[in-house]
């Protein structure tokens, strides 16, 4: 039976950040019978790029009592593969950002397809990492530690202090859907502060990197001493730049905005 599965990265938020390949695939999907799946938050950008394209909303996966996220992601991966390669649909799985960064469902789809020999097309998208790094001075020559805030605060991951670190999903205090409650993000921030304080001095300048949100999604930065990290809440999808304590990437400076205005 025919059928195909394509994962489409839509970038962090702005339609201008979507690749030409992704845009062309979305436009084609309006007429070629492809079946599109995604969370509700991709609707806005898809509507801007391919008006009228119907998306099957996957948000139910986050609202099922007694179903944790790993179970939901595994189920989603199996469902997408079944729909494509057993039921014969051309399936598009639309995801925010880059499909390759911090997307467990995408990873499971890729593994499942590899295990069963199913062809998988992956259309790349701009990652949040590309955007947020424009507010710091870093080139990559001396490395970068990329972890979720959860890894450091709760999983015991220890950072090396001679290389900078970018910690993402800074406001995620819970593995449940209520993690979008910004006001409670200080729970995670306080735990993260205490873990970092084991290796960095209290006055180490750390920078919260986040987006201004609709409509222009500008990269914003707020630098604070480590000891003050939990003083204010942050949006769940904020990131934390932790400069190295020494060496070429110890520059704590915040780069100016890059919109040319």
């Amino acid at each position: 039976m025919g059928g195909s599965l394509t994962i489409v990265g839509l970038g962090p938020a702005r339609p201008e950040h979507v690749t030409l390949e992704a845009r062309e695939r979305l436009l084609a999907a309006r007429t070629d019978g492809s079946r599109c799946y995604g969370l509700a938050h991709v609707r806005e950008i898809v509507e801007a790029l391919a008006p009228g394209l119907e998306i099957r909303a996957l948000d139910y996966l986050y609202a099922l009592p007694g179903v944790d996220r790993p179970t939901a992601y595994a189920d989603l991966a199996r469902m997408l593969v079944r729909r494509a390669f057993e039921d014969g649909f051309d399936v598009l799985y639309l995801v925010a950002g880059s499909p390759l960064y911090v997307n467990d469902a995408v990873l499971l789809v890729r593994k499942l397809c590899a295990r069963h020999g199913h062809p998988l097309r992956l259309i790349h998208g701009l990652s949040f990492v590309d955007l947020v790094l424009d507010r710091v001075f870093w080139t990559g020559h001396h490395g970068l530690q990329l972890y979720s805030a959860w890894n450091v605060a709760r999983d015991g991951t220890a950072l090396a202090t001679d290389a900078p670190a970018l910690l993402f999903q800074l406001g995620e205090f819970s593995r449940g859907a209520d993690a979008l409650d910004e006001a409670r993000s200080v729970v995670m921030l306080a735990e993260l502060r205490d873990r970092l304080a084991e290796r960095y001095p209290p006055d180490h300048p750390v920078t919260v990197l986040y987006s201004s949100g609709r409509p222009d999604y500008r990269s914003l930065a707020r630098q604070v001493p480590l000891a003050r990290l939990a003083d204010e809440p942050v949006p769940v999808y904020s990131n934390l730049w932790v400069p190295a304590l020494s060496g070429p990437d110890a520059d704590p400076a915040v780069a100016p905005p890059s919109e040319g205005r």
Binding site: R56, A57, L64, T71, A72, D75
Partner: peptide
């Protein structure tokens, strides 16, 4: 039935 399998199946059906 209670449990993740039935809930996920119902969720998929209603979504489709």
């Amino acid at each position: 039935p209670d449990g993740p399998e039935a809930r996920l199946a119902v969720g998929e059906a209603r979504m489709e």
